[in-house]
Design a protein around this nucleic acid. Sequence first.
DNA 1: ACGCTCGCATCAGGTGGGAAACGG
DNA 2: CCGTTTCCCACCTGATGCGAGCGT
Length: 566
Amino acid sequence: MLGGEGESSTFSSTKEVVDERCKSPAVDGEDPTAGSSGTVYTPSSAGRYSASLHLGSVLPPAGFPPSTAGRTHFSSAYQLGQSPGCIYPPYTGSGSALSNITLPGGGPGMRAQVYLCNRPLWLKFHRHQTEMIITKQGRRMFPFLSFNIAGLNLTAHYNVFVEVVLADPNHWRFQGGKWVTCGKADNSSQGNKVYIHPESPNTGAHWMRQEISFSKLKLTNNKGTSHNTSQMIVLQSLHKYQPRLHIVEVTEDGVEDIGSDVKTQSYTFPETQFIAVTAYQNTDITQLKIDHNPFAKGFRDNYDSMYTAPEHDRLTPSPTDSPRAHQIVPSARYTMQPLFQDQFVNNLPQSRFYNSERAVPQTNSLLSHQTEDGASQRWFVTSMQQGGNGTNTNNKLDLTPYEGEYSSSLLPYGIKSLSMQTSHALSYYPDSPFTTMSAGWGSRAAYQRKVTPSLPWSPRPSPTAGFPEDSNKVKPQIEEEVNGSAGLISSWTETQSSALSLDKAESYSTACKRRRLSLNGPSTEDSPADIKCEDLASAATNSSSYSKEALSSKGMAAYYSFYTNP
DNA sequence: ACGCTCGCATCAGGTGGGAAACGG
DNA sequence: CCGTTTCCCACCTGATGCGAGCGT
């Protein structure tokens, strides 16, 4: 099906109990990197799209239903050409992408900007054509959708929901290591296609205060499912889908206000496109899931052999390393960029290497690495540009669970400076002891309460402070955009690295304490604490000690200097 | 005494793998 | 027969509750 049937009526009449677990103390107030980790789409700035983005690469709206014709739809655009993970031209549905990206010219409607927080991770999957498991009881998405929103009316109420629509008219099959079309898609699928964020409706201030995570969203192939229907989106296996974010201004009761022109805006991020499957087809995807989903840690059984061996060994492992070695380490597909190696590998204890993103799948049948590089970089620049326009790129801290990790993953793509900035979220889970961000992964209130005071960064003081107009804070990003200089990037990175060291140490210390880990002794445990340790290790250049003492107060000063007084 | 923090144990639920079942 | 789906398994993370220790 091409349109989220009943999307309007569904959400407008639904008022769910706010899920407190999804709330977070929002520590995103001072992080200057938020925009850097997500694509921003600014409805009110169409000019910037044409100037900095490549509209020709915009993916289509994937069948935006006629009922929403009056809505404003924004599709992300980036330097990937045609749908990068799709070997076939994207389905154009009704109307072209360009026509649908027509933006309001500064009317009274909201001017929301949406960031896909965990875009780096999405890109990694997209590179291989993302697959999402669907089961009868429902399976969570991984990566899950996570957004930061800016530009909403602080006091107005909004429903925020995700709709998953058919992305192309084909039925897909994985054959010969590639996804190929296989007949026509079944458009007669039924069932819920919309997932309303459990905190809907809520004020613009609320939505902008924290990352909006759809981690609880589940995908199912059970059309007849009646229970948990609000948490389940019904899909068909072997069909390609495109999630879309909708922001609808509603009354305080959660009823859509139809009295206004532009009350609904939709955002499409092509990199979140995926094929629904009942079993993984592409081992690249399987490996990425295992690597990055903490719930799948149990399958990292060749952890030691993979991540403690010398670099050249790890990257070209023997198929006999593990029973799953052929699957776990697709050696030919993985490579390490020198820069990344220097910055994050060589300085790490070998045994702790795992979580600092040791490799990036270089190629796959669906997308060239080179293209992806450019895409990542351009996306980053674009984001900064948005921020540079006073659209608060900086103050939304992307504490996406894997943000730190995946920012690191971008390093080979020339975004060295980002890695450490976003490394607050070193834990996979937003609500880990290292970040007060919960964003839908369920909160650990006790941990947050205990740990937060020790964190150098503080929760965003107020909703309004979340997106300040202080252009100074995005200056480094702007500079990077303008110069594109590796030297500049590197310089900035170093500042960030040292600046973040102390807060990392604080968190690490706390974490180790809580997790009963030795601050000094090595650990093979692959835990958030370890992630922190690794990142800390990489942040504290050439430092073999993770102790707080190793990190000077100078670093703290620099930290605050950067974040509060650039 | 009271409240808070921390350590620990337990349980619920999320993972992918793999074998079996299903269906065209 | 072959591709797809379902189910169960082991492993993992996160949430929660309880008691001990500590400070006020």
